[in-house]
């Protein structure tokens, strides 16, 4: 039986809204994945380090403070700098559609906004992180 997918659920910056991150963490765990929750107030550098050390297949970042246009790109850069951009980086929060489109153009794989069904998020993570696992082994 294959090893379960490993996902880092992260909170960055000064944003203390952790309701969404915790719900997603539980939902992914209940769907059979191994979930590492970083806790609050992590820097982009710390989040990428955690993902590498934990041999994670994906990083899910939650931001509800309005700092998404700063923090998402910093993580994309860090992943590239560490040669870890095979890790599937996705996120969610109160992110207007035009910002979401720009973030996706800049390398974030998917942005989920409030109201996204858990099933849709789980499907995405299983599919995309599963593909990454096949490639990386």
């Amino acid at each position: 039986m294959p090893r379960p997918l490993r996902i880092v659920v992260a909170k960055a910056g000064l944003d203390g809204h952790d309701r969404g991150a915790k719900v997603i963490a539980r939902a992914l765990r209940d769907a059979g994945m191994e979930v590492i929750y970083t806790g609050l107030f992590q820097t982009p550098e710390q989040i990428v380090q955690t993902a590498i050390q934990e041999d994670a297949d994906g990083i899910g970042l939650s931001i509800l403070s309005g700092a998404h246009m700063t923090l998402f790109p910093l993580i994309v850069e860090q992943l590239k700098a560490q040669g870890a951009d095979d890790i599937v980086f996705f996120g969610g929060g109160t992110i207007p559609p035009e910002d979401a489109a720009e973030l996706k153009a800049r390398g974030v794989r998917e942005i989920f906004t409030p109201g996204a069904p858990l099933a849709e998020i789980i499907d995405f993570v299983q599919r995309e992180c599963g593909k990454r696992r096949e490639l990386v082994g």
Partner: peptide
């Protein structure tokens, strides 16, 4: 440094 991207947002 911790304030990056958050000033005046919320």
């Amino acid at each position: 440094q911790q304030a990056r991207g958050e000033v005046g947002k919320c």
